[in-house]
């Protein structure tokens, strides 16, 4: 589905501010996967994902979507952008229309869809992110921060992209708002069976849903693996300045106290199950 080959990008090349933000990244993301991308601030996550819909042209290396080089001769970047939907960080700042529904319709309208089709998609996308019908005719500038964020996300979902990429969709929201948005994204993934890439700098956010985790460090891929495999390397991950989920930390501490318990635990539910099993085993 998505493949990159020796992808490298350098900002401000040839000036004293030169900075290689993405460094030789080889990546392969399967169709339908839910991938969490995490890394420290400045590790190149945002730069990497902007390559995937052709907003940034690589300094060197290639990006393939469905086996097609997106900077190839006969490829229209605009079509790639409809195929790979990208929600920027703080997407509420890109809202401009008079009403919520018009703003969500901006993407579909650019695709040249019929009025009817646009309407269906706007309603569907709004419902997906929990923006009620009564809000559709309101001005988006009257909404709360969390609502605006969800309207902006709906604006990309309404294009029904084959790949949905979200750059830190929970940044700056309260815990409740984070929860809501993450759950909606998860549900979107399950319902639409599309590929979802969720960028975050919080392991906790990513650990719960992602089928695979891509850890970025200083522009390079640190590892790309399933959550259990990633979290067994908890010490290494801590050494690049990322924190593992709190339950994983607790289990690490338990192990260091000499309790023989598995290490690849990263959700509270699974932690509970593991502890129960452990206690039962010990009781016997």
């Amino acid at each position: 589905m998505i493949r990159t080959e020796k992808l490298t990008y350098t900002y401000s090349q040839g000036t004293p501010f030169e900075k290689t933000a993405v460094d030789n990244v080889d990546l392969h993301i399967e169709e339908g996967a839910f991938v969490g991308i995490i890394g420290h601030t400045g590790s190149g996550k945002s730069t990497l994902i902007q390559h995937l819909n052709g907003l940034i042209k690589p300094t060197s290396g290639k990006v393939y979507i469905d086996g097609e080089d997106i900077h190839g001769k006969n490829v229209k970047l605009r079509d790639i952008r409809f195929k790979v939907g990208l929600v920027f960080q703080y997407p509420e700042y890109q809202i401009f229309e008079e009403t919520v529904s018009k703003d969500i319709a901006f993407g579909p309208k650019n695709m040249g869809l019929s009025e009817e089709e646009i309407n269906t998609r706007v309603r569907e996308a709004a419902a997906m992110v929990g923006v009620g019908e009564e809000l559709l005719d309101r001005s988006p500038f009257e909404l709360s921060g969390g609502q605006k964020r969800r309207v902006a996300i709906a604006g990309v979902m309404a294009m029904r992209p084959k790949v949905l990429i979200l750059d830190e969709p929970t940044a700056g929201l309260d815990p409740k708002g984070r929860e809501v948005i993450l759950d909606q994204i998860k549900e979107y993934h399950q319902r639409s069976h599309t590929t979802v890439l969720l960028v975050s700098h919080s392991m906790e956010d990513v650990a719960r849903f992602a089928e695979k985790i891509l850890v970025m460090n200083k522009g390079k891929v640190f590892c790309y693996d399933t959550p259990p495999n990633v979290f067994t390397r908890a010490d290494e991950i801590a050494s690049i300045g990322l924190s593992v989920p709190q339950v994983t930390k607790v289990f690490g501490l338990l192990r260091s106290k000499g309790i023989d318990i598995r290490q690849d635990v990263y959700t509270v539910d699974f932690a509970m199950k593991t502890i129960k099993e452990y206690l039962e085993q010990k009781g016997r």
């Binding site: 952008r81 409809f82 990208l86 700042y93 901006f106 990309v156």
Partner: peptide, 29 residues
């Protein structure tokens, strides 16, 4: 500009009036 391009905005092609209209999604935000 990047965010609107990601939603399929066309900023650098088309006739003049269309291009001027395409500025609205950039200028308002």
């Amino acid at each position: 500009m990047s965010a609107q391009k990601a939603r399929g905005a066309e900023l650098d092609s088309g006739p003049f009036l269309q291009r001027a209209k395409a500025l609205i999604p950039i200028l308002i935000p």
